[in-house]
Design a binder for these strands. Sequence first.
RNA 1: GGAGGGGUACCCAAGUGGCCAAAGGGAACAGACUGUAAAUCUGUCGGCGUAGCCUUCGGAGGUUCAAAUCCUCCCCCCUCCA
Length: 404
Amino acid sequence: MLGVKEQMEVIKRGAVEIIPEEELLRKIKNSIKSGKPLRVKQGFDPTAPDIHLGHTVGLRKLRQFQELGHKIILIIGDYTGMVGDPSGRSITRPQLSYKEVRENAETYQKQFFKVIDKSKTEVHFNGEWFSKMSFQGIIQLASKFTLARMLERDDFSNRYSKQVPISLHELFYPLMQGYDSVAIKADVEIGATEQKFNLLTARQIQQEYGVKPQVILTLPVLPGTDGVQRMSKSTGNYIGIDESPKQIFGKIMSVPDDLIYPYFELLTDVSSEELKEIKNDLEKKEKNPMDFKKRLGIKIVSMYHSEKEALEAKKEFEKVFSKKELPEEIPIYELRYEKPKIWIVKLLTMTGLVSSSSEARRLIRQGGVYLNGKRVDDENLEISVEEEKVLKVGKRKFLKVISA
RNA sequence: GGAGGGGUACCCAAGUGGCCAAAGGGAACAGACUGUAAAUCUGUCGGCGUAGCCUUCGGAGGUUCAAAUCCUCCCCCCUCCA
């Protein structure tokens, strides 16, 4: 096991706050002395079935704790998932059914272990304790906190002042998360900065239940591919770690240039010297940001697939978008049509390339439809059904149409 | 229980009888440009074989030549008082 100083250095990298830092020092010291690893907790609510790069910021930190010899406790919030975390939210989250949550949890676990080491991880569903909690227990838990303190949160107070509804069950979320820490006796809990309130509430709840309070460690929130909102599945600005190499690479390339540095910092292992260099180069603007993005894309795809696939994805990207050639693999559509000729608009809607014929006409007018590499400029074009053809809609949609 | 304010397209939001398929912004999509699925600029953004029609402003009825807009009932949200 590494010494206190060395451990702290690893732990502090990329962290925003450690509260209280002295307490963490003490805990690590004790852990080294006693040989007992720290219990480091992070919870995830399985609201959407996919883990994306935003989740990996925390998971990677857990991984580092593992490498330092500590115990990771992963809480899968099957019960908290039914409430929905109000953190950073301006509206009530849609409530999920228990069944949905359990199904998502399955997928989650598979993906977790692409980042962290399964053999050194303890997994709990918080239903383990919440499903057994009596109403009496709930009253007891609720009595540990006051409304005034709850309303200190700016997400709640914003909603309240903007007259956006806050349901009572949402108030339970921080209490439940706190109780998780009681149940598993967490020494450290990590979470994104927007989790600070929940994380701090847990400290208080732990003390109320006679458990030593945890140290909290916050990490930056990862912006999504739009460069503005936090990465999340519901806003559609995410990159899932289970996506194909091509998709991950392509999405990295579509990220605004400003995100290049934060992504390198939060999502990859590049050394701090290398990071500095990247920052300098980006600021000087002498080098092409595209090349940094390619490097980033290769790094990230390599982590979740392989280096070989990463290089292939890069090649494919250059082929399709830089050279504007046809991609390596094009999906095939088998066309069944009773007449020898088919109207182009009809074909586009039939194949699902566009959702309505108005849209098809619009795209043709805008010059976004290609047939066998030639731009289609006639909305009334009739094309032969027999002949094999390749359709391109916009920059990214390709389809090979063959007659069935 | 009483009083008042609201519900408009994917999201925010304007519209209080016809000029409303509905301003503006965001998102999305297309094109141009390039350094890329970045940035910027331009355009599109309910549906229908494009031609005028059809469907849409919380829901159901009604008034009117004409309703997002007026009337009735209902549902939902917010605020204040109790």
